[in-house]
Design a protein around this nucleic acid. Structure first.
Length: 553
RNA sequence: UGACCCAUGGUGUAACGGUAGCACUACAGAUUUUGGUUCUGUUAGUCAAGGUUCGAAUCCUUGUGGGUCAACCA
């Protein structure tokens, strides 16, 4: 189908492996630590791992890398599962956990000791840190490095049964303290933690480190291609050392560049700060780049998957323009959303020659991109609301909207001409007075009249009030990776503007949370969960492209 | 001041020794009862210098620039 599409470097590796017969099928995995909410960076990885499995008829596991109990929680496990499902992916079988393998991992540790490849080190954290050396200077071997197998086994057993206090000793691999790769200088394999684990409870007093758990878990699950981000590149020699030394299934680690987005932070640590310091309302604040945030904002699974597709996979560092993300939602929503009329900042428009009590029903096209969406009836009357920005007392030539004497079409309705306007005591426009031409009714216009502008409107009497939350980018700085002061200094103070009483068309009365619409000429909106009986709350997902606003100074 | 990784328009990403293509952005035009959509077009790129070759974005060397690594985090 997409034969013509060029392959990224990982797909090339996979196809080679398939062709050479090295693998007959592939297994990938998405391995989050359940210590926070997933964000767009994870979405890239999810789409990669699950997408590859789909494409090559393989399988993709969901595996929680839960080796650090203090930071982890089931709350995160649940949200991660929900987010993966929301993106439309199904993991193979049940979710897996590194903690499922704690017994096996312990056996591996015993094995390493027996073969002389691991030892218990009693040095303090500081001692170990100094003896590890620096990237430019080799480290020194620990004085405990040559303990006997028996003693090591005994001590490990002691660590396991909780005999020793936290921090008193660790299990280390015996590799090479002079290696130019810091990760090969006798890395820590097990540390003592007398902590409650969200799944294994209090059964363990020792927990494996990432380096001892991750690769082995891949191997246990017979993961063929273990994809991770570039910063793990230096761990690969260790990953392979474990496979060779333990003689276990040879999963292959392949690294790709993580996602960076303009005007966005994608780091669990920083996002956590925003939540904890209440700079946002929570992990699912619609301004957050978390999956739960963008979902609430109105981004669709489809738009995220398309986005992931467009940004590609490579090894070079990148900074993706957030405009590409916005393009992806607009593309998706344009095809699917039903159009509605909604006025964010209303002013009255009164049609002086329209009968006082008359109500006419206009035919509204639900979606010009999809004829099967059909039409709806929209009540039209003498008093309407239009957008404040659609009228100017003294408009420039290129302004295609209303001004004294000017004519515009009211969408799906009549052409009106402005004959007068009134201001309030603050000097703001309060009312615009027009006359309409009955012969210009939409669909049966006999005049052949052409106007430059078409305006949205709602009937004053029939429209319903709504709260609309307009979101803008959370940060003002394009490349937040390049700032050296506190990233929070770059927060956009106007990232949220709440409009308390917008006027929207009456057909929205039955809208429920999660429903998505386009307000014509405005943007895409989703009904928020904060909506209650009689009070709709909309989140603006993204505005429409606006070539007029762009041209203005 | 060591090891490893990376370098293609403004931003991403292809081209696998043989015409540098695609998407986004920007700009211009056409269509339009959304200043939306759609369509057409324009600007714009191989980090540098050497080398190999009939031919180099691609291979080699050197340089330059960027990134990663010194948690009992992942």
């Amino acid at each position: 189908m997409d034969e013509s599409k060029s392959l990224n470097f990982i797909e090339q590796i996979i196809e080679e492996d398939l062709e050479s017969g090295r693998h007959s099928t592939i297994t990938t995995r998405f391995p989050p630590e359940p210590n926070g909410y997933l964000h767009l960076g994870h979405a890239k990885s999810i789409c990669l791992n699950f997408g590859l499995a789909e494409r090559y008829n393989g399988t993709c596991n969901l595996r929680f890398d839960d080796t650090n109990p203090e930071k982890e929680d089931v709350e995160y496990v649940d949200s991660i599962k929900e987010d993966v499902k929301w993106l439309g992916f199904n993991w193979n079988g049940e979710a897996h956990y590194a903690s499922d393998y704690f017994d096996q991992l312990y056996e591996f540790a015993v094995e390493l000791i027996k073969s002389g490849h691991a030892y218990i080190d009693d040095q303090t954290v500081d001692e170990m840190s100094t003896s590890r050396g620096t990237p430019t200077r080799p480290g020194k071997e620990s004085p405990f490095r040559d303990r006997s197998v028996e003693e090591n086994l005994e001590l490990l057993e002691g660590m396991k049964s909780g005999e020793f206090a936290e921090g008193t000793r660790v299990l280390r691999a015996k590799i090479d303290m002079a290696s130019p790769n810091m990760h090969m200088r006798d890395p820590v394999l097990y540390r003592i933690k007398h902590a409650e684990h969200h799944r294994t409870g209090a059964t363990w007093f020792i927990y494996p480190t990432y380096d001892f758990a991750h690769g082995q878990s891949d191997s246990i699950e017979k993961v063929t291609h273990s994809l991770c981000t570039l910063e793990f590149e230096v761990h690969r020699p260790l990953y392979n050392w474990m496979i060779e030394t333990l003689q276990i299934y040879p999963s292959r680690q392949i690294e790709f560049a993580r996602l960076n987005l303009t005007y966005t932070v994608l780091s669990k640590r920083k996002l956590l700060q925003l939540v904890e310091e209440k700079r946002v309302t929570g992990w699912d604040d619609p301004r957050m780049p978390t999956i739960s945030g963008i979902r609430r904002r109105g981004y669709t699974p489809n738009s995220i998957r398309n986005f992931a597709d467009k940004i590609g996979i490579a090894k070079r560092d990148n900074l993706i323009d957030v405009a590409l993300l916005e393009h992806s939602v607009r593309e998706d929503l344009n095809k699917k959303s039903w159009r509605k009329l909604g006025i964010l900042d209303p002013i009255k428009l009164i049609i002086s020659n329209f009968p006082e009590d008359k109500i006419e029903y206009m035919q509204g096209i639900n979606n010009p991109e999809d004829e099967s969406a059909g039409k709806r009836e929209i009540p039209f009357s003498k008093e309407l609301y239009i957008e404040r920005s659609d009228f100017m007392e003294d408009p420039p030539k290129k302004f295609f909207r209303l001004g004294p004497g000017r004519e515009v079409r009211l969408k799906f309705a009549y052409i009106v001409q402005c004959v007068d306007f009134k201001k309030n005591s603050q000097g703001e426009i309060a009312e615009v007075h027009c006359t309409y031409d009955p012969a210009t009714r939409s669909g049966s216009d006999t005049t052949g009249k052409k106007v430059k502008g078409t305006l949205g409107w709602v009937s004053a009497e029939h429209s319903i009030d709504a709260e609309i939350r307009l979101y803008d980018r959370l940060f003002l700085t394009e490349d937040l990776g390049a700032v050296d002061d506190d990233f929070k200094n770059h927060l956009n103070p106007k990232s949220l503007e709440v409009i308390e009483s917008a006027k929207v068309e009456s057909s929205l009365e039955s809208a429920t949370p999660g429903d998505q619409f386009q307000f014509e000429r405005q943007g895409y909106f989703i009904v928020d969960n904060d909506s209650s009986e009689g009070k709709l709350v909309f989140n603006r997902t993204v505005s429409l492209r606006d070539n007029w606003a762009k041209g203005k100074p």
